Amino acid sequence: MIVACAIDRRFAELAGVMIYSLELNGSIPEADIWIIGDGLRRSDKEKIQACAKRKITFHDLDPSTLQHLAGFKTTSNWSRVAYARLFLPALMPPTGNLLYLDADTMIKGSLRPLLEMDLSGKVIAAMGGPSKHNLPIGRAQDAFYFNSGVVLLNLKEWQSQELTLRALELLKGRMFAFPDQDVLNLVADGQTVALDPKWNSQLAKATSDEVRIVHFTHAKPNTTYCVHPDKALFLEYRSRTPWANARLKTMWDKRLNRLLHSLRRKLKPSPKGR
């Protein structure tokens, strides 16, 4: 199995701690780790590599891929690299499974059951259920809608169905509230397996020993305003990485990031043909 994460520089710290927790608790030493990067510096890669026992494969987004992403929706919290998960399966060998993990996840238990999961005839396994997010994308509210932060992908099925091309066609044809996540749900419609919530635990009160993957979907654990009960464990793990002495980000950092993103959007010329 391949474990992959897609980040820009802002999420290097979170990705490093996630990988440290994977090495410590994941119980899948044979899995390959890939980091898809957008603008990562050599120093960023060196720090992330220092968090792992095994060699990490770094893949920088190339100009042709970035050209595909031009004009797609971004926010101050959600950069163009979020779309990279749609390209990931096309970069991999067409065998086995790919486990995609957002950088803001933390591994608390063995991932071996995911490594051994049989996805024959299915495209994706993920945590989800009926959701109001189905309605804006033209699906019934009781349809299975999954969160894209932890996704197990069947590489053979994805590639044989050319779902990367299908995803790009959808993105170019309409606007989505949650583009990468909405599109993944559409291309895998009827071909999904529901994962237990322990594989993508997003509740701040979920401290059960059964949780295997924590997903910090709101305030990130490297901020002063995060109150998640697993923040202390995150900081313990971080203390063993190159970010041990990094300061916690504040609300002022968040506001500055929003301001800079707004300025970049105003100054950036509109792509031709859009």
Rank of each mutant, 00 (worst) to 15 (best):
W34L: 15
W34P: 02
I35Y: 08
I35W: 12
I35G: 04
G37Y: 05
G37W: 06
D38K: 13
R41L: 06
R42L: 10
S43G: 11
D44E: 05
E46G: 02
E46H: 07
Q49D: 00
A50I: 03
C51A: 00
A52Q: 09
A52L: 10
A52R: 15
K53R: 14
R54M: 06
R54W: 03
K55S: 05
K55T: 10
K55A: 14
K55M: 11
I56R: 11
I56N: 09
T57Y: 13
F58M: 06
H59Y: 12
H59P: 10
H59V: 12
D60A: 10
D60E: 15
D60S: 10
D62R: 15
P63S: 03
S64N: 01
S64F: 11
T65H: 08
T65L: 11
L66S: 03
Q67H: 14
Q67Y: 12
L69A: 00
G71I: 05
G71R: 15
F72Q: 13
F72W: 15
F72R: 13
T74F: 13
S76Y: 15
N77M: 11
W78N: 03
V81R: 04
A82C: 14
A82H: 05
A82N: 07
Y83A: 04
Y83E: 02
A84F: 07
A84S: 14
R85S: 14
R85V: 13
L86D: 00
F87Q: 14
F87I: 07
L88F: 11
P89N: 13
P89G: 06
P89L: 10
P89Y: 09
A90G: 00
A90C: 03
L91M: 14
M92V: 08
P93K: 01
P93F: 05
T95Y: 15
T95N: 08
N97A: 08
N97T: 12
N97L: 14
Y100G: 04
L101S: 05
L101I: 07
L101D: 03
L101P: 09
T105F: 00
T105I: 00
I107S: 06
K108W: 11
G109A: 15
L111W: 12
R112V: 09
L115G: 07
E116D: 14
M117R: 10
D118P: 03
S120E: 10
G121W: 05
K122M: 13
K122C: 13
K122A: 05
V123E: 07
V123C: 05
V123K: 00
V123S: 02
V123I: 08
V123T: 14
